[in-house]
Write a protein that binds this DNA or RNA. Structure first.
Length: 661
RNA sequence: GGGCCCGUAGCCUAGCCUGGAUAGGGCGCCGGCCUCCUAAGCCGGUGGUCCGGGGUUCAAAUCCCCGCGGGCCCGCCA
C-alpha cells in the first residue's frame, strides 16, 4: 500500500482518472509478477482500456498479449488473475470480474469522487490543465492570408485551428508564440498595388480589406481576360482550334465573374477597366515586384506597405472579434531585405548544392533525399522531388526560397514550429523542410510540423480570392451572432438588451468555433450556415447550455458547497452519477492528449459526452430538492465539478461559458 | 503518368497512428415528456456490405497488398 500512497500523492490531485489507471495497473502488475510473469508497469498501464459497455466494468485489462507471451490460455489466465485480486481488499476497486479473457474492474466511485472533488476544490479554474514536465518554446504560425482580400471562411478554419492549438499548448505549460506571415512579395500583392495605383490610390470605402479585396479581384479578372484574349488570338493564328475552344470556355467563365464583380460596385469596376485598358499588365507587375524586392523605388515600396497595412488592419479587426491575436506579424519583405535569403543562396553555393534546373538557379535535393535519416524523419514519399528553383531569371526570389529563410527566423527562439497551412501546400512545405535539411539545418527540418487542414468549400463551388468569390469571415461572424440573438430574444425577452447582446455573442461565436474544430482538420469541409451555426445537440451552444444550467442550480442554491458534509455513498446510487464522476475525472487526461497530439477535437468529443450526461442528470435527479443533506451536498459538488470542467474545457477551445442563456 | 489526403446509415461525423468484447454521436424521420433547479433539454424508436477484394492475426473499421470513387499537388504562382 505504501507504493499506492506515493502514487496517490503524485498524480491523484491533478489527474484523478490517471490515478485510477495507475492504481489498477499496479494491482494487475503485482498479481502477474506473483504468478511468475515479469511484466512492465508501463505495458500494463497502456494495455488498460475502457470497456465498450459499462455493465462489463469501468476499466479492463485484456490478457491476450501476456497470455501469448508466456504461452498461457487467456481465459484461464484472466480467471486466475481475477481470483487472486479478489483475495485482497483494494480501496479503489469495488469488484473484479473475468470475462472472456478480460479482467474487468469496477471502480469504487465514492472513492474516486473524493479525489475528484478535492482536485476541483484546490485547482478550480486550473483543473484539467496538467503541465508538461519539460516546457518547449513553440511557434504556431497560422492564418497568414495574402493581404489582398478580406479573410474568408477558409481562413476562419485556419485561424480557429491555429488559435486553438496555441491555447492548448500554452495551457499545457509550453512557451508559445503565435506568428502571422505577411506574404507581401508575391504576384498577388503586386497585382493589387497595380490596380490601386492606376486608380489613383483611392481612400477605402468601408472596411479596407473588403474594399481593396474588390479592387484586387477586379484587377485580376481584367488582367486574366486580357491575357486569355491575346492567347486566343495567338492560337487562332496557328490554327489550334481545339485550344481556342477550350480558352473560349475559360473566357466565358471569367466574363461572368467580371459581371458579378461589376454588380458589386459598378463605378469602381468601370473606372478600373478604363484605366487598365491598353496597358502591358505583365511587364508593369513584374516591374513593381522588382522595384519592391530591390527597393528601387521609394514610392513603390511605400505603396506596397500602405496597401498591405490597410488590409491587415481589416484582418486584425476581424480576428479580434473571435478573440484571436498574434504575438508577431512578420513581413516577408523584411526577411528578403535582411539579406537572409541571399545568405542562404551563398550557403547553398558553398556547399556545392547549386544546380541549374530548367535554366534557373536551383537547389539540388537529390543527395538529401537519399539520406535514410532524412527519409524517415520527414516521411518522404516514394518519388523524386526535383531541384527547388531558388531564383527567377530576373534575379527576384521565389516564395518557397523566402519561406525557407522564414523558417530559420521562426526557429531563432523556438524548439518546435507548427505551421497551420492548407493541404494544397503539402509539397511546398515538404520542400522547405528538405531544403533546410540539405543546407544543414537538421534541427529545424525535423522540428517543423506542417499542420494540414483541408479547404472549406461552398456547396456549389470552391472559393476564390482571385475571383472575389467567397463568404467573408466578417459575414460568418455577423450571421452567427444574429442567429444566436434571435434565440436569446425569444427565450429571455426580459433581460436588458446589453446582457442579451453579450449572450448572443458568446453563443454565436461559440457555435462557430465549435463547428470549425469538431471536424478533423484533414477532412474537407462544406460550409453550410445551418450546420456551422447549429444551436442544437452536439453543438457549441448545447455545451454552453449545460454549463448555464449548472450555474443556475448553484445560483439558486445560493450558498457555497459544503465539502465537509458530503455523503459519498450517494456516488454509487445511480449509473448517471457514477458516469459523471468517472467522466469528470478524465478531463486532465483528455486535455493532455489533445494538447500533446495537437487534436482539439478530442476535447470537443469529451465535452459532448459531459454535457450529455449532465443534461440527463439534470432532468432525472433533482439537486436542490434533495432532502438528505449529505446527498444534496454530494450532488451540489458534482454540479460544481461539472460547471468547472465544462467552463475550463470550453475556455481551452477559446469558447466562453455564459452563466445564463 | 507519379505522389499525398479522404471514403463509416438518406446527410454530417467519432473511432484508424498505438488491432481487442454487440462500430459511438448528431441531423432527418416516427412516438412520448414542462403544476417540480432554464424544453437551446430529456426518454424511446427508425436506419450500417465500416468503398470492394485478398492477406497477416486467437482477434481487422483499425495493420499490409491489389483495385474503385472523390479531392489536391507535381509552376522561373503563392
Amino acid at each position: 500500500m505504501g507504493v499506492y500512497l506515493l502514487l496517490y500523492l503524485q498524480s491523484s490531485i491533478n489527474n484523478p482518472f490517471r490515478y485510477v489507471r495507475e492504481y489498477v495497473a499496479k494491482v494487475v502488475q503485482s498479481e502477474l509478477r506473483r504468478l511468475g510473469f515479469d511484466v512492465d508497469f508501463s505495458d500494463v498501464y497502456s494495455t488498460l482500456e475502457i470497456p465498450p459497455d459499462e455493465s462489463l466494468g469501468d476499466l479492463a485489462f485484456p490478457v491476450f498479449k501476456i497470455a501469448k507471451k508466456f504461452k498461457q490460455n487467456p481465459l484461464t489466465l484472466a480467471s486466475t488473475v481475477t481470483f487472486n485480486i479478489q483475495q485482497c481488499k483494494h480501496v479503489l476497486v469495488k469488484r473484479v470480474k473475468a470475462v472472456k479473457g478480460y479482467v474487468n474492474f469496477f471502480i469504487n466511485t465514492a472513492e474516486l469522487a473524493k479525489i475528484l472533488f478535492e482536485s476541483i476544490r484546490s485547482l478550480g479554474e486550473n483543473y484539467g490543465f496538467v503541465k508538461v514536465e519539460k516546457p518547449l518554446r513553440i511557434v504556431v504560425e497560422h492564418t497568414s492570408a495574402n493581404p489582398v482580400h478580406p479573410l474568408h471562411i477558409g481562413h476562419c478554419r485556419n485561424a480557429i485551428i491555429g488559435d486553438t492549438l496555441a491555447r492548448l499548448l500554452k495551457l499545457r505549460g509550453h512557451k508559445v508564440e503565435t506568428r502571422f506571415y505577411i506574404n507581401d512579395m508575391g504576384r498577388q500583392v503586386a497585382t493589387l498595388v497595380y490596380g490601386y495605383t492606376v486608380l489613383g490610390k483611392p481612400k477605402p470605402k468601408g472596411k479596407p480589406d473588403h474594399y481593396l479585396g474588390l479592387i484586387y479581384a477586379i484587377t485580376n479578372t481584367i488582367i486574366e481576360i486580357d491575357r486569355l484574349k491575346s492567347e486566343i488570338e495567338k492560337c487562332k493564328k496557328s490554327n489550334e482550334y481545339e485550344k481556342v475552344r477550350e480558352k473560349l470556355r475559360e473566357l466565358d467563365e471569367l466574363i461572368s465573374v467580371a459581371s458579378e464583380l461589376r454588380s458589386r460596385d459598378r463605378e469602381l469596376f468601370d473606372k478600373l477597366a478604363e484605366k487598365l485598358k491598353g496597358r502591358d499588365h505583365e511587364s508593369e507587375i513584374s516591374r513593381l515586384m522588382r522595384e519592391y524586392e530591390f527597393r528601387e523605388s521609394k514610392e513603390t515600396v511605400e505603396t506596397f506597405r500602405e496597401v498591405c497595412s490597410l488590409v491587415i488592419q481589416g484582418f486584425k479587426e476581424t480576428l479580434s472579434k473571435l478573440g484571436i491575436t498574434f504575438d508577431k506579424w512578420d513581413w516577408e519583405s523584411d526577411i528578403a531585405w535582411s539579406g537572409l535569403v541571399r545568405k542562404l543562396i551563398d550557403l547553398a553555393k558553398s556547399r556545392n548544392l547549386i544546380t541549374l534546373y530548367k535554366g534557373a538557379l536551383a537547389l539540388n535535393l537529390k543527395d538529401v533525399q537519399e539520406d535514410p535519416d532524412v527519409r524517415e524523419k520527414l516521411k518522404l514519399p516514394s518519388f523524386n522531388i526535383p531541384p527547388l528553383i531558388l531564383m527567377r531569371s530576373d534575379g527576384t526570389t521565389l516564395y518557397t526560397t523566402r519561406d525557407v529563410a522564414y523558417s530559420l527566423v521562426k526557429f531563432e527562439n523556438a524548439d518546435k514550429v507548427i505551421n497551420v497551412i492548407m493541404n494544397e501546400q503539402r509539397l511546398e512545405q515538404l520542400q522547405v523542410r528538405l531544403a533546410l535539411a540539405a543546407l544543414g539545418y537538421r534541427r529545424q527540418a525535423y522540428n517543423q510540423i506542417h499542420y494540414v487542414y483541408e479547404i472549406v468549400k461552398l456547396p456549389g463551388f470552391k472559393m476564390s480570392g482571385r475571383k472575389g468569390r467567397y463568404i467573408t469571415m466578417d459575414e460568418a461572424i455577423e450571421e452567427a451572432i444574429v442567429r444566436a440573438r434571435v434565440e436569446v430574444d425569444k427565450r429571455n425577452p426580459t433581460l436588458p438588451a446589453r446582457v442579451r447582446e453579450e449572450i448572443a455573442k458568446s453563443v454565436g461565436l461559440g457555435a462557430l468555433r465549435y463547428a470549425m474544430i469538431s471536424v478533423s482538420a484533414t477532412k474537407p469541409m462544406i460550409f453550410e450556415w445551418d450546420r456551422v451555426l447549429s444551436l442544437e445537440v452536439n453543438s457549441g451552444p448545447y455545451i454552453q447550455y449545460a454549463h448555464a444550467r449548472a450555474v443556475n442550480i448553484l445560483q439558486k442554491y445560493g450558498k457555497p458547497v459544503d465539502y465537509d458534509r458530503i455523503d459519498y455513498s450517494a456516488a454509487e446510487e445511480t449509473q448517471r452519477r457514477r458516469r459523471l464522476v468517472k467522466l469528470l475525472s478524465q478531463m486532465p487526461e483528455v486535455f493532455s492528449r489533445a494538447a500533446d497530439e495537437l487534436k482539439p477535437e478530442y476535447i470537443v468529443e469529451y465535452l459532448g459526452k459531459v454535457a450529455e450526461e449532465f443534461n440527463a442528470f439534470y432532468t432525472e435527479d433533482p439537486v436542490i430538492g434533495e432532502p438528505d443533506e449529505g446527498k444534496r451536498n454530494f450532488k451540489l459538488a458534482l454540479v460544481e465539478a461539472t460547471r468547472i470542467v465544462l467552463r475550463n474545457s470550453l475556455n481551452a477551445l477559446g469558447i466562453t461559458a455564459p452563466e445564463r442563456m
